[in-house]
Each structure stands twice: as C-alpha cells, then as structure tokens.
Design a binder for these strands. Structure first.
Lengths: 145, 145
DNA sequence: TAATTAAAAGATATTCTTGTCCTTTTCTGG
DNA sequence: CCAGAAAAGGACAAGAATATCTTTTAATTA
C-alpha cells in the first residue's frame, strides 16, 4: 500500500507541474502535463476535469487554452487537494477501519496513530500548491518516474 | 484512502484477537474470530490461510483445532505483519509514486514524508502482536465495527 | 475405523480503481 | 463565419481488491 491512491499521486504531481508553469504565466495542455509527470494522458485528463469541476484548478478551452492555477489558488494547502481526491480518511480515519473508534472506544492503535495522522495533516496543511515552483524551475525536484 | 488495505485491517484485528485468545491458552476457530472482529468470515479465512503459510500465525485442523500464536510469535513486531500483507511501500515507497525518488533525485515531498514513514515504521516496529492482550481481556480496547 | 470437526484449496462473483476510446462542446484566430 | 485547437463528457475495458461458494485434506475422538 502507498499513502495516496494512484489517482491522488497523479493529481499532486500534475498540480505541482501546473502551478509551476502557471507561475511563469503560461497555461499547460494535457499532453504537456502528462509528459511532464509521466502519467497516462487520458486518465490524467479525467482527473484534471474533476479537479477543475471542484475548483482546485482552472481550465480554458480552445487555442492557447489549457490548465492553470491562479496566484490565490497556488497559496491553497495541499491538504485541500488530497482531501478532494482521497477524502479525509488519512486525517481522521481509524487505522484499523473501525467506524466507532474514538477516544472513548479506541482500537488498539488509536493513540499511536493519532500522532501520525496529525503529523500528516500538519504537513499537508502547511504545504501549498505553489510551494515548489522555484525548485521545479531550477530542476532540483523531480515529478517523473 | 486509509493507511492500510482492508485486507491488512482485517489481518491486524484478527491477529490481535488470536494473540489475546492464545495468551489464555486456547485456539480460536474462524467463526469465532470473524464474529470477534466483525469481518466477512470466508474472506478472513483466506487471509488467515495466507498468514499461516507465511508463518505469522499457526493453525491446527480437526476437532479442537483453530488458529493460535505461540509466545515467541506474540513478541514479533507488528511491522512484520503489515509488511507481509501490504508490502513495505508504507515504510520505503515515495509518497508520489516515483520509482526513482531518492535523496539525490527527490520528489517535492521526499524529505517531509521521510519523517512520517520513519515514524510509522518505528511505531509498527515497536508494537508487538501480543502487545494489547491485557487491555483486550479487560475490554478496554475494541476490535469491532 | 467411521464420523465429525475445522482448516486448506480452488473456483467464481462482485466491486472499485485505473485506464482508454470516441464524440461533443467551447474557444480562438484568420 | 469557419477551421482548428483543446478541454468536457459519456461509455467502455482491463485489472486489482474484496467477497463468496464448494470441495478437499487433515486431525480428533468415539
């Protein structure tokens, strides 16, 4: 198991890619993005359509169209994106899948995992969608393979 | 997304349940376990067969048979179980699914998630399969719903 | 040894995720 | 207004995860 679903992995990589390109003032087409993050183009298209509907990214049809993220949206926390795609199970769900797990009716791992869930949430909440634009520009970070 | 697969959730809950019963000196049948942890009986049977083949639990056929875990195995780390079911992606995999992600070719989240992966591994490695026997006996912890 | 019990094994069904294909809509530039 | 570009949308396909059913094997005990 991975932390995120494959869909979410593609979504995060794509949004980082779009944020980076958008910070340079240009829109990006689906082909460009798919190549830039090594993902199946048509599947990624579905994911981005969904993110667009949910308002996490913007899109424009027609010539010179493509996907982009405005400055305000680039300041949004990564947790918004993860939650939109994978839900909030990572932040709030019981590690053992128990619906009724809580402080007063804890599963064996409840307390230990609370710390981990909190840390994951904090990390994703602190990180913004545009956080890595500089490093991506300089080629210091990878979004491929 | 949850941290563990459904299969792994069932596996952990079942193993905690078996460890607890085994510490009282009795074997447990699949029906008993499935009822004790609220899981689909026949699916759980498959999971336990697999764990048995992998040596994480023991089983005995015939009357008075069932599943059990000996004292030595009750001291094994939970990480062994998780790894047997879900693999080691949680401990070592890249959060964004990149095969080549590493210190020298990091994805944007590489460093942040290293801390989280380490913490998860540490937690699962410190916790033993028999860790919660006392609390389960006293009814202080839940494995159901 | 026969009957019973319980796990093992194999086959199949269902559901969800991931991935592809084809058509439609919308926008832009000439 | 027309042709082309690009995303949106709907339908479908493949694969993996989850779940069930049936038969077989092994052990116990009467």
């Amino acid at each position: 198991m991975a932390i995120f679903s494959k869909t979410c992995e593609y979504a995060i990589r794509a949004v980082f890619y779009i944020a980076h390109k958008s910070s340079l003032g240009s829109k990006v087409g689906i082909k460009d993005i798919a190549a830039g993050i090594d993902s199946p183009e048509l599947y990624l298209a579905k994911i981005l359509q969904d993110l667009s509907r949910k308002g996490l990214i913007k899109s424009a049809k027609g010539p010179n169209g493509g996907f982009y993220i405005d400055e305000a949206a680039r300041a949004r926390p990564l947790s918004d994106l993860v939650e939109a795609v994978d839900g909030n199970g990572l932040f709030y769900g019981c590690a053992l899948g128990l619906k009724q797990c809580s402080e007063i009716n804890p599963c064996p791992l409840h307390n230990q995992f609370k710390a981990i869930r909190d840390q994951i949430y904090l990390l994703l909440h602190q990180t913004t969608l545009g956080e890595f634009n500089q490093e991506l520009l300089k080629g210091l970070l990878s979004l491929k393979k």
